[in-house]
C-alpha cells in the first residue's frame, strides 16, 4: 500500500513537473512575434530627428516596399568628372593630385586586383559601368557593387548588412555601400578602439 502511494505521488509529481515545463516552453514570446504578420505603420511613430543628409529613392524594393539610400554624388569632391574628362586638353599645376595619384586601389584578389575601368565607365566618366555595359549613377552604386557582392546586396536590401540612418521607425533610409566603404579600398583599416574597458567590479 505504502509502495503504491509513493509511486502515485511520484507519478503525479513527475507529470506536474513535465506539464509545467512544457507550458513554460510553450509560452515563449516568439510565438507572438511569429504570429504578428500585420504591417506596422512606421510613419505612426513621431520622430524627433529627421534624416538631414541628401537621399535618393532606391531602385530596389525591400520586404516593406520602397526605401531611400544616402546620396553620394555631392560627397565626391570633383564631381562632375566630365569637367576634366572631356575632349579639351587640360593643363594643371597640381597634376599628381588631379590625375588621381592619391587613390590607392586595394580592391579584388591579390592576383587580379580591380582597375579603374572595372567599375568606371571608360566613355562617360560621370557614370559607373557594370559588366553588362549598363551605365550606373554614382548615387546608386549598390547596383554596381551587387554584381559581385550579391550576397551582401541581398542582406543589405533585407537589413542584415549595413544600417539605417538615425531612425528605426519612419520611412526607411539606409546607408549606401560607399557611405561606409571606400570603393577603392573597401576593407576597413586597422585602428585602435575608441575606448577601453576596465574589469567588472
Amino acid at each position: 500500500m505504502q509502495l503504491f502511494l509513493t509511486g502515485l505521488i511520484l507519478l503525479v509529481g513527475i507529470t506536474t513537473l513535465f506539464w509545467g515545463r512544457a507550458r513554460a516552453s510553450e509560452s515563449s514570446f516568439l510565438d507572438e512575434v511569429k504570429k504578428s504578420t500585420a504591417r506596422f505603420d512606421n510613419r505612426s511613430v513621431p520622430l524627433v530627428k529627421e534624416v538631414t543628409e541628401d537621399t535618393v529613392l532606391s531602385h530596389e524594393k525591400y520586404q516593406g516596399g520602397s526605401f531611400r539610400v544616402l546620396a553620394r554624388k555631392k560627397n565626391i569632391e570633383r564631381y562632375q568628372c566630365s569637367n576634366c574628362h572631356n575632349d579639351k586638353p587640360v593643363t594643371v599645376n597640381r597634376g599628381a593630385e588631379l590625375t588621381h595619384g592619391d587613390i590607392v586601389l586595394n580592391h579584388g584578389s591579390a592576383e587580379r586586383g580591380l582597375v579603374c575601368i572595372d567599375c568606371h565607365s571608360p566613355e562617360q566618366r560621370d557614370y559607373l559601368e557594370d559588366k553588362k555595359g549598363r551605365k550606373i549613377d554614382f548615387d546608386h552604386s549598390y547596383d554596381l557593387c551587387g554584381q559581385c557582392h550579391f550576397r551582401q546586396k541581398r542582406d543589405w536590401i533585407g537589413g542584415a548588412h549595413g544600417k539605417r540612418v538615425v531612425n528605426w521607425a519612419g520611412d526607411r533610409v539606409v546607408y549606401n555601400c560607399t557611405t561606409c566603404h571606400d570603393p577603392h579600398s573597401p576593407r576597413f583599416e586597422k585602428r585602435f578602439p575608441a575606448t577601453y574597458s576596465v574589469p567588472l567590479d
Binding site: E32, S36, T37, G64, G159, K163, R164, C180
Partner: peptide, 24 residues
Amino acid sequence: CPTGARVFGNLLDPDSEIRYVLKH
C-alpha cells in the same frame, strides 16, 4: 557602429530589419 554589425527594430513588424535577420 561603423561596421553595421548592430541591427535594431520592431519585432512585431514583419518588414523590420530584425525580423529579416531572424528569418534569413
